[in-house]
Each structure stands twice: as structure tokens, then as C-alpha cells.
Computed example of a mutant assay.
Amino acid sequence: MGYCLDKAGFDQVLQELSREYTVYAPKVFKDGGSFSDTDRIRYGEIQTIDEVVFDRKAEFSWKEVLLPLSQTLFFFTEDHIKEADLPKKGAVILLRSCDLQAVKRLDAIYLENGGRDYYYQQLRDRVKFLLIGCRHSFDNCFCVDMGTNRSDTYDAYLELKDGRVYVDNRTAAWEATFAARSLEAAAVTPAYVTENTKHVQLPDQLTPAILYSTIWDEYDSRCINCGRCNFVCPTCTCFTMQDIFYTDNGKVGERRRVWASCMVDGFTDVAGGGSYRQKNGQRMRFKVLHKVYDYKKRNGYPMCVGCGRCDDICPEYISFTAAVNKLTAACKEVSGNAGK
């Protein structure tokens, strides 16, 4: 059902939703940027529509709302285990089409990849997604080429236009809330990007032979293995486990899972002292091919959603899109070396 609300009316909707949910959206964090006297756009709790940043891309993805950087799974003593309490409220997250497409990727990994992740499922079941329309592309976005510029799996869609808030609601429990504050019924169609300035082209036929291309060698010296690209990515799913033992009793503590990065030292350490992919070029190779080859071979679509945050955040100006666009030449290289 489509509705047109003024800002005051939508703020009342937010107040109503906040009884059951914490509402998150891209917002300005004053002086939170990488440099002094700079701001940062990332996800945080909002109370009003004016707090939402519609005209800039969030530098960090919505994923940090759904999946905490560090999540306590359970507490333990010598004799007992107690599961950690869930947040008292669910979450409503405002995000763009590419990020909503990322939800599909996370679900595939955590819920359909050989079993259901119990802890992810608990959080996922308590989340609603409000789609934000995109009228234009942002720097480094390539969602059109990845086919993620549109999404219709939202719980509600909202767009701010000419001082009015237009909503397409698909959640039955919210109908009365929107209807009571609507100025008028409206036909609301999600806006989406049809053209990006940055483009990627995936080769039609990637094979494991691409592993042996020399294109990965340059990243040995360029990449500093900081892991920022992984942490801002909405589809990276890797984590590590930590048992934290309390100081006053070394047999009591808690188990946490913490985000991990395939680009940092220690990610591939194994029992016995072994460590795989020690060179940064090897790590870049793994990341790129996982996003556009391995995952696609299993699920039928790429893992990358084209948000461009990895390109935005890299302190060494390494471009993921440039790496992908080199794959065609790399295929020709390894094909030419096949008979040697």
C-alpha cells in the first residue's frame, strides 16, 4: 500500500516503531572521519527522518547493525552454559538496493550453506528492511553491472521527495500505523540507478587456471593487509572464535565470535604452525575470486553487489573493480601458457 506523509507524520511512525524496534539508517557521525575535523557516514540509531543521509553513501555497510563486530554467544562456568540474551528490541534497517541484495548473500552463507547458523538466524528473524531509493549513482558504485541496482524483497520502501515521505508498505502489521498518519494514498515505485560511471566486466568462462596468472603479483607490494576492504564489505562473512576467561576465575568466561578478514596476517594459520596464503597477492586472489567465481559457481550469482566501498576505503588506492576487469586478460594469459 502506498502512502504520502509529511516529515512530522513519518517521525511519529518512527516513534511507533521504536516501541518494538531500534531503527538504524545512514547518519552523520560528527568528527568521526579518518582525518581531523571530518565527519563519517555510517549506520546508527535514528529518531527522525532528518537524521537520515539520503544523498551520500554510507562508508560502512549496514552489516555492522545485524552482525556485531564482536558478539557474545554464551557464558560458561565449570558446570553450566548460559546462552547470551538477545537485544530487547528487533531492528529496522534503512538500506539501498545493493545492500538489500547483500542480505540475500548473507542468508545464503549462514542459512543455506550446509546448515543453518543458529546465532545468525536469531538475529535475522528480528530484522525488517526499509529500502531507500537511489536517484543517482555514487562514486565507485557498479551495481548495474552486478545486477544489484534493483530489489523487491523489502518490508517497506521509502523515498524523501520535495519534503514529503513516500512509502510503499508490505508489512501488514504496519498498515494501521502508516494509514493513520498518511496525507493521502499514493502510487509509490522504488527508484533505482540505471547507469554507473564505473563498470566491470566478468569473463564468460572463468576457470581455476586463473589462479596462476601473474596479475596477482602486483598486490604483494601494493596491499598492506589492513583488512579494511573486508570490514566495510556488506557480503564478507568470515569470523573467528574467542574464549574470554575472567580474571577473578580462570574457569569462567564467555565465547565470542569476532569479524575476521582474509586479507590480514594469521587468517590462514592452522594447527601445527602452518599458514597458507602468506603473500598479499595470494590473499587478493582469494578475495576477488571468492566474490566473482567461487560463490557464483555454487549459487548462480556473484557474491559482490557492486557497492564500491572496498575501493572507497582502501588507503593504498587498490581498486577491486580494476582487479575484476583484469580477469579477461588474465584468462588469455593462462590459456596461452597451457601448452608450455
Rank of each mutant, 00 (worst) to 15 (best):
T321F: 09
G339M: 15
C223I: 09
V13T: 05
D162W: 07
F286M: 12
A180K: 10
V103R: 11
R56S: 10
E16T: 12
L206V: 12
S137F: 02
G163D: 03
V92A: 03
D39W: 00
E59R: 10
N149S: 14
L160S: 01
L94Q: 03
A91L: 03
C314E: 04
T171S: 04
L327R: 02
R255M: 11
F320C: 05
A108T: 06
E218D: 11
K30T: 14
C310N: 06
L183E: 12
I41G: 01
K27N: 02
C143R: 02
S151G: 01
E16A: 05
V232Q: 07
D265R: 14
A176P: 00
V334Q: 05
P68M: 10
P315H: 09
W216Y: 06
L86K: 07
E16R: 13
T148L: 07
V200H: 01
Q201N: 11
K7F: 00
L86I: 03
R255E: 08
S275D: 06
D294Y: 04
E195H: 12
G9K: 01
C141T: 14
D243F: 11
V324P: 02
E175W: 10
C223Q: 06
E45A: 02
L66R: 06
E45S: 12
R164W: 01
G273K: 14
C229N: 00
G2K: 13
G308F: 15
V324M: 04
L206P: 08
G250D: 08
L66S: 15
C304P: 13
G273N: 09
V144R: 09
D248S: 12
M284E: 13
P234L: 04
S137K: 02
P315E: 06
S36R: 14
R298P: 12
A322P: 01
P315R: 15
Q201T: 15
T247Y: 13
D99V: 01
V324T: 02
G273R: 07
V23P: 02
G272E: 13
E159L: 03
W259S: 08
G33N: 07
Y246M: 13
D312Q: 15
E45T: 06
Q121Y: 05
T189L: 13
F245H: 15
I93D: 12
K297I: 05
Q278I: 09
K332Y: 03
L17K: 12
Y246N: 10
D55A: 11
S261V: 09
R135Y: 01
A91F: 13
R42Y: 00
G339W: 15
L69M: 01
L183F: 00
A209K: 05
V324N: 00
V28A: 13
S137D: 00
V324K: 03
M241K: 07
V144D: 05
D85S: 00
L211V: 13
A191N: 07
Y43S: 03
Q242N: 08
V52T: 07
L158T: 03
G339P: 15
D39T: 10
F75E: 11
F245A: 14
L67C: 14
N299L: 03
M263W: 00
Y119R: 05
Y192P: 10
D50H: 09
F54A: 01
A271G: 14
P203T: 09
E333C: 10
R277N: 02
P208R: 07
Y120T: 07
F76V: 14
E184L: 04
G227D: 00
K287P: 08
C238D: 09
W216P: 06
N149Y: 02
A84V: 04
A338Q: 10
D139P: 15
I244K: 09
